[in-house]
C-alpha cells in the first residue's frame, strides 16, 4: 500500500472518530439522536433517510471541507462505483433531456413510488435560453458544449458528473443522481446530450 493511501485512510479514520471533547457538549450527536426521535416515515420517505452514509458523515463532520487527501481518496471511491453504459454511447436525445431537466419531481413524501424522477436541473442551473425560470445554486450551463467541446472526454466528464457529482467534488451540493438510483442510464444520456449535442438549444 503506498504512503499516500495509507495517510489518507488514517485521516479518514480520524475524521470519523467522535470529535475530541470540546468546551461545550457534543451537540452533533445529540442533534442526530433528536432527529431520530422526532421524525416519522411518510409516503416513500422512510426514517432511515436520516442515517448518514460515509460520505455524508465526512462532509458533515468537516463542515463540507475535508482534508484534501481524504477528499481525493473518497472521490476515487465514488468514481469507482460509477456504472458507465455498456454500449459505450453517452449521448442520448437532447429533447428528452430538456424534459428531464425541467422536472423537479421525485423522492419527497408527496411523490408516488415508481414514477420516473426528474433531474431537478433548472432548480439550480441556467440551461436552455428559452427557460428563464432557473435557479442559481449551481453554475450556468448555457453554451456548455459550445464552450467546453463535446469530445469523448467531455462526454464522460458530464455523464459521471450527473451520475455522481461527488466523484468530482466530494462535498458538492449537487445530488448523486445515478448513484442513488434517481436517474437511470437512458435519462443521464439524454441530459448529457442536452448539454453537449451541438443541435441542443443550449449550444445555439
Amino acid at each position: 500500500m503506498n504512503n499516500i493511501i495509507k495517510t489518507s485512510m488514517l485521516l479518514s479514520a480520524a475524521l470519523l472518530l467522535p470529535q475530541p471533547a470540546q468546551a461545550d457538549k457534543d451537540y452533533r450527536s445529540e442533534a442526530i439522536a433528536m432527529l431520530k426521535r422526532d421524525f416519522q416515515p411518510r409516503g416513500i420517505a422512510s426514517v432511515d433517510r436520516l442515517d448518514e452514509d460515509g460520505l455524508q458523515a465526512v462532509c458533515n463532520r468537516s463542515a463540507n471541507n475535508p482534508p484534501k487527501e481524504v477528499a481525493q481518496r473518497l472521490e476515487q471511491d465514488q468514481m469507482a462505483a460509477v456504472k458507465l453504459p455498456a454500449d459505450g454511447k453517452l449521448l442520448g436525445d437532447w429533447k428528452s433531456g430538456e424534459r428531464i431537466a425541467q422536472s423537479g419531481r421525485g423522492f419527497t413524501w408527496t411523490d408516488k413510488p415508481g414514477l420516473p424522477v426528474g433531474g431537478n436541473c433548472y432548480n439550480c442551473h441556467q440551461i436552455s435560453p428559452a427557460e428563464t425560470s432557473f435557479g442559481t445554486l449551481g453554475p450556468s450551463l448555457f453554451h456548455f458544449g459550445k464552450l467546453r467541446g463535446n469530445g469523448p472526454d467531455m462526454q464522460k466528464y458530464v455523464y459521471t458528473k450527473i451520475y455522481n457529482a461527488k466523484a468530482h467534488n466530494l462535498c458538492s451540493a449537487m445530488p448523486r443522481f445515478g448513484h442513488v438510483g434517481a436517474l437511470n442510464e437512458a435519462q443521464i444520456k439524454d441530459l448529457v446530450a442536452l448539454l453537449l449535442d451541438l443541435n441542443s438549444p443550449v449550444n445555439k
Binding site: E30, A173, P175
Partner: peptide, 15 residues
C-alpha cells in the same frame, strides 16, 4: 446549538 446542528446536517437521498 441543537438547531444549528440540525441546520447543517446533510442526509437523505439528495445529501
Amino acid at each position: 446549538e441543537l438547531g444549528k446542528a440540525v441546520f447543517a446536517y446533510r442526509a437523505g437521498p439528495y445529501d
